[in-house]
Computed example of a mutant assay.
Amino acid sequence: MSTHDIRKPSKCSIVVDDVDAGEKPEPELEVNTAKTVQTSTTDSDTRDMKEESDARIKQIQIEAESRKNEFAKLLEEHAQVIKELKKMEEGPPSVAVTGPTKA
């Protein structure tokens, strides 16, 4: 073997993207305690917004419960299918049905 046959180690470079590059620090909020800011909303406006918000929260909770129940049904069906497949794998081979039968 000559010195020309020895291979040099290959070079490798790793590029790492800066994940924080696009983020800008949030500006700090200035709080002026000397002034009191008056809002234009009245008590009835605030009450209406709260009622709308509460109604929306209730609707989201009902939808979440419905999805949870549906998911539980799907999990149960999945467990049943797995159980049947395991039974089929462990049991004796059955006669395969090929195509529709004519009556």
Rank of each mutant, 00 (worst) to 15 (best):
E26T: 15
K24H: 14
S40R: 03
T39H: 09
I60V: 07
K58G: 06
T33V: 05
E51M: 04
T41Y: 04
M49K: 14
T39P: 00
K35R: 12
V37L: 07
V37I: 03
T41E: 12
P25R: 14
K24N: 11
D43I: 10
R56A: 15
N32Y: 03
T36D: 10
T46M: 15
K24S: 13
I60P: 00
P25A: 14
K24T: 06
A34I: 10
E26Y: 11
T42D: 03
D48R: 05
G22T: 10
T33P: 01
T42E: 10
R56H: 07
R56C: 05
K24C: 13
Q38P: 01
D48K: 13
S40I: 04
S44Y: 04
T39Q: 02
D45R: 02
E26N: 09
D54I: 02
L29M: 03
T46Y: 08
T39N: 03
A55Y: 01
T33E: 08
Q38T: 09
R56M: 03
S53L: 03
V37N: 03
K24V: 12
E28K: 07
T36H: 07
N32L: 14
R47Y: 13
K50H: 11
E28A: 05
D43L: 04
T46E: 12
R47E: 08
V31R: 01
D45S: 04
P27Y: 01
E30I: 15
L29T: 12
A34T: 14
Q38N: 05
G22W: 14
E23Y: 08
E28G: 09
R56G: 01
K50Y: 13
S44L: 09
E23P: 00
D43Q: 12
K50N: 15
A34R: 10
T41D: 10
P27E: 00
E51R: 06
S40P: 00
P27M: 00
G22A: 09
S44Q: 13
K50P: 00
T41K: 11
E26R: 07
R56F: 03
A55R: 15
S44V: 13
T33R: 05
D48Y: 08
P27N: 00
T33C: 08
K35H: 10
P27S: 00
N32D: 09
I57Y: 05
N32A: 03
Q38R: 05
Q59N: 12
D43S: 05
T41V: 14
K24Y: 11
T41R: 12
V31N: 02
R47D: 07
E51L: 06
E28D: 15
D45Y: 01
R47M: 04
E51W: 07
P27A: 01
Q59M: 13
I60D: 02
E52V: 02
S40H: 14
A34V: 12
D54Q: 09
E28C: 02
D54H: 09
I57W: 11
E23F: 09
P25I: 03
Q59W: 06
E26Q: 14
E52W: 12
S44H: 04
E26V: 10
D54P: 00
E30T: 11
D54C: 06
E52K: 11
K24I: 05
T41F: 06
Q59A: 13
M49R: 08
P25L: 15
